[in-house]
């Protein structure tokens, strides 16, 4: 059995604002094994990005966060670490790629300087070595002429290149876990495919684990081993990719999959999920999806379903799961 790298247990990330509590991450448990790619899928606002930032303990302090639970990385609980210990983890053991390549690079420093910094903050290396490593990092993400590009500024390169540089920075210290938060959302379609392939290759080459946050089931199908489906701050279903696509057991997962446009579908209305996700400061007391669920019964509205395993690899939070067909 593969070794557990990351284990998140009952994570809660709440934001407090004007006397109200926003439950952005509400009792989330998940794990990532070594060499594994876990997809996290959900609508905008379902807490996917907050989950990524919570793992790195970089939830903006301005949002007044309250974080509880356990985040075990290689057996150590990140949530009880000192800020100094956590800093040693960031970049070198766990790293993250942000969504927007246009604003993720600091405009006043060269690409090389920004990569070198990521390397030098974790190990002592001479300026010469750091530069060589920066050039190598650029080469790895398939930037042409890395020896000259290393001295370019972010505004001098294209959006697709920028996102690859962001990747180079995130992977400069060869982290064991990479969190990619919608890494291709702002790229055009051909660049998306290229970038995903690059991520896939680098993950395999370095034996990294990957958490891929996305709203796109197409990306999931292409990249992931397992998928966790998020809804309003909770993970409602976790299963291997094939099972999610072929035998979704949670009604939300099924509805989400049904609302994906398909090429071989007859023309006509694209199925949608009626209603809107609940507000995070006013969550229903029962199942969060119940108000939108066609199958909801009275229990669903009053009691929160517990996480249950319906197979060793398949977890679900639902009182009346779909039949496996």
């Amino acid at each position: 059995m593969a070794k557990r790298l990351l284990e998140v247990e009952n994570l809660k990330t709440y934001f407090r604002s004007q006397g109200q509590v926003f439950r952005a991450i509400d009792d989330v448990s998940l794990h990532v094994d070594e060499n594994e790619t876990l997809g996290i899928v959900g609508e905008s606002g379902s807490g996917k990005s907050t989950l990524g930032l919570s793992i790195l303990r970089l939830v903006p302090a301005a949002r007044n966060p309250f974080i509880a639970g356990r985040i075990l990385f290689d057996g150590r609980d990140l949530l009880t670490m000192s800020e100094g210990e956590m800093r040693a983890v960031r970049g070198s053991e766990i790293s993250m790629i942000l969504q927007d390549p246009m604003t993720s690079l600091n405009p006043v420093f060269t690409l090389g300087a920004q990569i070198e910094e990521a390397i030098l903050s974790h190990k002592k290396a001479g300026a010469q070595n750091a530069r060589a490593a920066a050039i190598e990092a650029l080469r790895q993400v398939r930037i042409a002429a890395p020896e000259t590009r290393v001295d370019s500024y972010p505004h001098q390169i294209s959006g697709g290149m920028r996102q690859r540089v962001v990747g180079a920075i995130a992977m400069a210290s060869q982290p064991r876990l990479l969190i990619a938060d919608e890494p291709t959302t702002s790229l055009d379609v051909t660049l998306q495919a290229q970038y995903l392939q690059l991520l896939k290759d680098l993950r395999a080459a370095h034996g990294m684990s990957l958490i891929l946050i996305t709203h796109d089931f197409g990306v999931v199908a292409r990249m992931c081993d397992r998928v966790a489906v998020m809804y309003a701050g909770s993970i409602v279903e976790t299963a291997p990719v094939r099972e999610i696509f072929h035998r979704p057991r949670h009604w939300y997962t099924a509805a989400l999959l049904a609302s994906m446009p398909k090429l071989d579908h007859p023309r006509g209305h694209l199925p949608t999920i009626e209603g809107a996700p609940p507000r995070l400061n006013d969550l229903p007391s029962g199942c969060k999806f119940a108000p939108r669920c066609a199958q909801a019964q009275s229990t669903c509205f009053t009691q929160m379903p517990e996480r249950q395993s319906i197979s060793p690899v398949h977890d679900i939070k639902c009182w009346y799961p779909r039949e496996a067909t």
Binding site: G91, S92, S95, D100, T103, E117, A118, S121, I169, S173
Partner: peptide, 12 residues
Amino acid sequence: EYIKLARIKGLS
């Protein structure tokens, strides 16, 4: 975002 990335890198 680039401030977030700087923190992700593990900078103090």
